[in-house]
């Protein structure tokens, strides 16, 4: 039994590798090219540093990087969570209320056209350099994709299923739990993922504009000091935050809607 199990794990790893070795090779190749082109073309260290130096110099400044990752991560998590908690019920309400669809919905579509990040300097001038304006900016860039996709999700049940629900005589609540909610989840997750990608962008730009801590602040300061090695280290941790958030959303998606084609395909 044990040997059978290890055999299947081994074959699984082998299959995974067969599927992705080209990607892995390309990935490694990219960093090798970066590493050695900096040396071959004699690019000055204050313009571009090889990845090996990013790792060693970044490791030397790890305390600061980790603390700033915590700061920026907190902004991202708070902004994203608040957006999720507010946008999902609002999207649901708009999808089911004709009044809201005629009043709030067009307003949201108009606001969606405004680049939210342009508000960042205003929020910072109103609320100072602290956590709150950053959380608001992250919230803004996450809120709209979630609410718009939720509206779409909850108002696009197929004609056939709508008729089926009515023919069963089931009440609104039962129909919602058994059919409308699960049917809406895939489209909702489109919004959740989009927002997860936006979140770190929002946090970084908000910190560029006015901040005294966080990874955006760090990247700006070290770039000013001609330290691209540390800037790349900052970018690495910023990416890590984004990847963790996106990974968490994708994991939740896999657990909640394993039947959906977007999950099955990957």
């Amino acid at each position: 039994m044990a040997s059978f199990k290890s055999y299947t794990i081994l074959s699984m790893v082998k299959r995974r590798f067969e599927q992705s070795w080209m990607f892995i090779a390309f990935f490694i190749g990219f960093f090798l090219f970066w590493e050695y082109s900096v040396i071959w073309f004699e690019i000055p260290r204050y313009i571009l540093t090889p990845p090996s130096l990013v790792i060693t110099k970044g490791a030397a400044d790890l305390d600061r990087l980790l603390y700033y990752t915590y700061v920026t991560g907190l902004e991202v998590v708070l902004g994203y969570s608040i957006a999720l908690v507010l946008a999902l019920p609002l999207g649901l309400a708009i999808a089911f209320s004709q009044t809201l669809k005629r009043t709030v919905y067009p307003f949201i579509v108009c606001i969606e056209m405004v680049p939210k990040i342009a508000f960042a300097p205003l929020f910072i001038s109103w609320l100072g350099f602290g956590l709150l304006p950053k959380v608001i900016i992250v919230f803004l860039v996450c809120f709209f994709p979630i609410v718009l996709n939720a509206i779409l999700a909850f108002s696009s049940l197929s004609e056939e299923l709508t008729l089926f629900c009515r023919s069963t005589g089931a009440g609104a609540w039962r129909t919602f739990l058994k059919i409308r909610l699960p049917a809406a989840l895939p489209q909702c997750f489109v919004g959740f993922k989009y927002a997860a990608i936006n979140a770190t962008v929002g946090a970084a730009i908000a910190e560029f504009i006015g901040s005294d801590e966080g990874l955006g602040f760090y990247i700006q300061i070290v770039t000013g000091n001609m330290r691209p090695d540390l800037a790349f280290a900052g970018i690495f941790f910023l990416t890590l935050i984004g990847l963790c958030l996106f990974g968490l959303v994708t994991l939740t998606e896999r657990i909640l809607i394993p039947w959906h084609i977007s999950v099955r395909r990957s």
Partner: peptide, 25 residues
């Protein structure tokens, strides 16, 4: 009722879909 496009939901198995009719009622 039945339509050209069926009313099976993708998140339930065949049995689950048959049970859905009962659960809705």
């Amino acid at each position: 009722i039945m339509f050209q496009d069926n009313t099976l939901v993708p998140w339930r198995s065949v049995r689950g879909n048959i049970e859905l009719q009962l659960e809705m009622r």
